[in-house]
């Protein structure tokens, strides 16, 4: 599918070298028009640095970047008109109202829009004459996203848009991001929430220590995992001989120190059927069969668990 679509961002062999640290070490990827592209990784994986080099905030040490057909090094001004940027935990002017901030940022682009109509998109029209500090965390993030849309950009960059938000506010934001996509804009976001990447992103690049470990459509990434099937069960009566049998067909772990809780990872449907036949005999208190998640992909690729 993506072969037919237009590339809006092309990144080739991007490197950012600091005196004591290689933050980004040869990253290559393309972003297609109209998709939500996610950079997934732990804190310090190089996501933000990659994003900020594309946005023109940091100078790359090496590598090529093209945004909306323009060269990052020579045509940054044109690029700035085509993109909207929401920074990680960015604050805005303390002594300006939301309405004033929107219209001020608008003049930076030489455009003229009605701030209220922008604020309405995120249900903040009641707050038009309030200062930013009177907003809740979720409202601030929503406002921050709206402020990145004042120039009607083709590409929107969102750096950890939902970090630190409660579950309701996060779902609210997911809806907003989907709405932006349905307006025909391309969204590039970073996150360290697996769930978020899985739900929102059309394609995901998993980053660790400055390189991309895997990049594909989200569902394909999940399929590619070595053990795509997963069984969770709670059973205190199962005997050791049977557990040994299970260990032969897949990876069996006791979850986080709870003695009765088990997780079994399997490669094939046959193995799953076999394992279930054993588990069912002992009448488990709980039994859940599912597919691997993006988190499993991540753990498999990086060999560690992501911290929230």
């Amino acid at each position: 599918m993506q072969k037919k679509m237009k590339k809006v961002i092309e990144v080739k062999n991007l490197v950012k070298q600091y005196p004591k640290l290689t933050a980004v070490n040869g990253v290559t990827f393309d972003v297609y028009q109209g998709e939500i592209f996610g950079l997934l990784g732990e804190n310090g994986a190089g996501k933000t640095t990659t994003l900020e080099m594309i946005e023109g905030l940091r100078k790359p040490t090496a590598g090529e970047i093209k945004v909306a057909g323009f060269d990052r090094y020579t045509q940054l001004d044109q690029i700035k008109h085509k993109i909207g940027v929401q920074l990680q935990s960015s604050a805005y002017y303390q002594f300006l109202t939301l309405r004033e901030i929107v219209s001020l940022f608008c003049t930076f682009y030489g455009c003229d829009i009605d701030p209220i109509s922008m604020l309405k998109m995120v249900d903040l029209e009641d707050k038009a004459d309030s200062f930013i500090n009177s907003l809740s965390g979720g409202q601030k993030q929503r406002f921050s996203i709206i402020a990145s849309l004042v120039n009607d950009p083709e590409i929107v960059f969102l750096d950890e848009p939902t970090t630190g938000l409660d579950p309701i506010a996060r779902r609210n934001l997911w809806e907003l991001i989907t709405k932006i996509k349905s307006n025909g804009k391309t969204v590039v976001l970073t996150t360290h929430y697996m769930e978020e990447a899985e739900i929102l992103c059309d394609r995901v690049a998993i980053m660790d220590k400055g390189i991309i470990l895997a990049l594909d459509e989200t569902h394909r990434l999940v399929e590619k995992v070595d053990y795509p099937l997963s069984v969770n069960f709670i059973d205190g009566k199962i005997d050791k001989a049977e557990l040994e049998k299970l260990k032969k067909v897949g990876k069996l772990t006791q979850t986080l120190g709870k003695e009765k809780h088990f997780n079994l990872r399997l490669q094939k449907q046959d193995d799953l059927n076999f394992a279930l036949s054993i588990i069912i005999k002992f009448k488990p208190e709980s039994l859940l069969v599912g597919r691997a998640t993006l988190e499993d992909v991540f753990v498999e690729l990086t060999g560690k668990k992501i911290e929230e």
Binding site: G56, H81, V85, L87, S90, Y93, F105, F108
Partner: peptide, 11 residues
């Protein structure tokens, strides 16, 4: 407050 950075992303 990252206001300077935010300004840099605009033209």
């Amino acid at each position: 407050d990252k206001i300077l950075k935010r300004i840099t992303t605009t033209p």
